[in-house]
Design a protein around this nucleic acid. Structure first.
Lengths: 95, 95
DNA sequence: TAAAGTAGTTTATAAAATAAACCAAATATT
DNA sequence: AATATTTGGTTTATTTTATAAACTACTTTA
């Protein structure tokens, strides 16, 4: 068998990893903020947030501020666990 | 602009990263050994080695031991540099 | 000498990433 | 007041990547 633990493919993706990295440090963050910090395009980010959300790694809520739509994301317990396990596995590769 | 450095897509791949991780610790390694250690299938490994080799990250030499073909791989200077830069960038995401 | 094993490569398919096009509403411009 | 632009996204299409399956060439074993 392999010496290397598998890397959760949902997290082993630059943009999704950046999103998770961001969210793990804050209570919540908004779409536009995440977009700027990660450098993703809106379309790409939309897709990646969907994937993380479908996996239960983040929760996404849509509302309005005044008249503008606001998409707010937070990492879930499950997301934190998955992130930690990913980081743990990854260390095997880079140490 | 983005807070996150880009992750070299050639290295940000489970199997190729495992190969590089292995090779950085040894002088050279053979196809079959790498295959076992990384858990890749032969077909997949063949493809991934080609990519790393085309990028100049590893060098591949083919010879025979007795009558059996032996494919030997080593990491190149450029490969070491790329790996180090990748690890450095990655740390931003996981720390 | 036929079957199975070794050491891979090539090709086809599935999955993922990314970009481009689009939508709805709000705000700014002429 | 109409038109253009911006904001905040989503959807769809295209490209790229990963993976698996099939194949090649040769060797060893039964």
């Amino acid at each position: 068998m392999s010496d290397f633990k598998r890397l959760d493919p949902l997290l082993h993706s630059q943009h999704r990893l950046a999103v998770m990295s961001l969210l793990i440090g804050v209570d919540s963050a908004e779409f536009v903020f995440i977009k700027e910090k990660t450098g993703a395009t809106a379309g790409n980010l939309s897709v990646q947030l969907d994937k993380l959300s479908s996996a239960g790694y983040i929760s996404v809520s849509k509302s309005f501020r005044g008249k503008k739509p606001v998409t707010t994301c937070s990492i879930t317990k499950q997301g934190i666990k998955a992130f930690e396990m990913y980081v743990d596995a990854l260390k095997q590769y880079i140490q």
